[in-house]
Structure formats: structure tokens, C-alpha cells
């Protein structure tokens, strides 16, 4: 009796079914497979004998992994904090009812439309010690000027920070600006009636009101940090040596160049854990919002 009434809902279920299958086959099963492989002695080929934490022990004993993971932390902290500060500042500046707002917005956001490969190649050229910025400043007469981070072991990761900030600050700017524009204008009127200076209103009232927006910003950028692959490949190829390696590159290299699936899987699990930690505040916020 209910069958006819349910007909559309049944079609809906059938339409969603392939998605469910795809999610399971392409997302969850591979996660589980990788998780299991990380506890096996797999090398070039999968080996399904359980071997405990052996792969993780090896990973922790690998200097390249430590470098990659530390780089991710340096990159993450610097990139996220600089991009958020710069992006918010730009959003506030653009929010000042300025002329040619569209022009400024367009210029500040255009890097986002470019791929990380393009971004990496552009900055590699700009920061190239012999041809780029260093050469230009020296040519101006400042012969002692040095800006060769790209080829310095302990500094190359910072050039990646610079390029990533250039790429993504516009994103923060656009999201924050949308948030600022969404604030009830009555709150602005109230601050004016109470004589609160504009910069204080931003710092103490508006930005705190935008906390959910900021959390979104942080999570978006943080995920990009963990996923990062293209940018390093284009800019430094992880070098000099493996000094600017990142976990995202470590995993791919292990799996496809070194042929070490076990190590790749263990490192992938470490990435997954990191993403989970990065996404936590967002999920927390979502859960709080939905009660």
C-alpha cells in the first residue's frame, strides 16, 4: 500500500546507490587497504602478512620523513598564519568603501585561479638566484644582496611558504570579505553611536564575530598544506637534496619511484591523522551548529 507513495523516494535511493558504491570502493576501501598494508612488510608488492609496527618504526628512523614532517609543520604554521593575517588585513582594507574595489579584488584573487605547478614555476623563476630577484637587486648596485633561499638547504622550505601565501591569501581575503559584508549593519551603527574607533571595532567586535569564517579559512588552508605536492615538485623538487620535502611528496615518491608500498602506506596514515586533526575544529563547529 505504501509502495506507490514511496516510488519517488525509491528512485532517489537508486540514484544515490552508485555514489555510495563509489564512496566505498574509491574512498573507504582504499583507506582500509592502506591502513592494513602499513602493518605489513610490503615492499615493491603488497604482502599481506601482519608485521606490527615495523613500517612505522622504519618511518621514524628515516631522516627524510622527519625532514618532510617538520617541513609540513613549518610550512603549515607560517603559511596559515601569514595567509590569514594578510588576507584578513586585505579584506578589511577592501571593506573601506574604496574606489575600484573590483580591480583590487580581481588582482588579489587571480593567483588562486592558477595551478600550484604554475605558481611554483613562476616563483622558481622569480627567486632564481642567478637570474631572478637577487640578480636584479645586485644589478641595482647593492652587490652584497643575497636572496638565494631557493638553493639553501635550511631555507628552501620558506620559499614554498612565500609562493603559497601569494597563491592563497586572496582566498582568505574573499571569504573574510564575504563574512564582513554579511555582518548586520546595525552592529556598525551601534559601534559608531558608542564612539568605538573603527580599527578597534574590527579587532574586538567584527573579527571575533567571524570566528566560524576564520575556522573555515584555517581548515581550507591546512588541508592544502597536508595535500601539498605540486608546489614543491614545481619549485624545488623537494631539494636541495630532500631539504624541502613534504609528506605528500614523500608518499608519492615512496609508492611510485622507490617502490616501497609499506613505507608509503605508513606515511599516508600519518597524513590521514594530520588531516583529521586539522579538520577537527571544523567538524566541531559543524556539530555545535547543528546542535
Amino acid at each position: 500500500m505504501k509502495a506507490a507513495l514511496l516510488k519517488n523516494a525509491t528512485i532517489a535511493r537508486l540514484v544515490v546507490l552508485p555514489t555510495i558504491v563509489v564512496i566505498i570502493v574509491c574512498f573507504y576501501a582504499p583507506i582500509l587497504w592502506s591502513a592494513y598494508i602499513s602493518f605489513t612488510p610490503s615492499g615493491m608488492f603488497p604482502n599481506y602478512h601482519f608485521a606490527g609496527l615495523m613500517q612505522y618504526d622504519r618511518l621514524l628512523a628515516t631522516d627524510r620523513w622527519h625532514v618532510a614532517f617538520r617541513n609540513m609543520l613549518i610550512f603549515g604554521v607560517l603559511f596559515v598564519s601569514i595567509a590569514i593575517s594578510l588576507g584578513s588585513l586585505l579584506a578589511i582594507l577592501i571593506d573601506q568603501n574604496i574606489k575600484a574595489e573590483a580591480v583590487f579584488r580581481t588582482i588579489l584573487l587571480y593567483p588562486l585561479s592558477m595551478s600550484f605547478i604554475v605558481t611554483g614555476l613562476a616563483w622558481q623563476w622569480f627567486l632564481n638566484p642567478t637570474m631572478g630577484l637577487q640578480h636584479f637587486v645586485q644589478d641595482l648596485g647593492w652587490a652584497g644582496f643575497r636572496f638565494d633561499w631557493l638553493v639553501r638547504r635550511n631555507l628552501s622550505i620558506y620559499t614554498i611558504v612565500i609562493a603559497a601565501v601569494w597563491h592563497s591569501s586572496g582566498l582568505v581575503m574573499a571569504i573574510t570579505l564575504a563574512g564582513l559584508r554579511g555582518i548586520d549593519p546595525d552592529i556598525w551603527r551601534a559601534t559608531r553611536v558608542e564612539g568605538i574607533p573603527r580599527w578597534r571595532a574590527y579587532l574586538h567586535i567584527m573579527l571575533p564575530m567571524l570566528r566560524p569564517v576564520m575556522v573555515t579559512n584555517v581548515v581550507l588552508l591546512a588541508i592544502n598544506v597536508v595535500k601539498s605536492y605540486d608546489l614543491v615538485v614545481a619549485m624545488t623538487q623537494g631539494g636541495p637534496g630532500y631539504s624541502s620535502d613534504l609528506p605528500g611528496k614523500f608518499v608519492v615518491d615512496m609508492a611510485f619511484q622507490r617502490g616501497n608500498i609499506g613505507q608509503a602506506s605508513a606515511a599516508a596514515m600519518a597524513m590521514l591523522a594530520t588531516v583529521f586533526i586539522a579538520v577537527m575544529p571544523y567538524l566541531y563547529l559543524q556539530m555545535k551548529r547543528s546542535g
Binding site: A29, P30, I31, A255, F256, I261, L272, V275
Partner: peptide
């Protein structure tokens, strides 16, 4: 989900 986590499977 980062692609790298599931890319090999």
C-alpha cells in the same frame, strides 16, 4: 581526504 592516502590502492 588527501589523494596521496589512497592513490596507490
Amino acid at each position: 581526504l588527501p589523494y596521496q592516502v589512497i592513490i596507490y590502492p
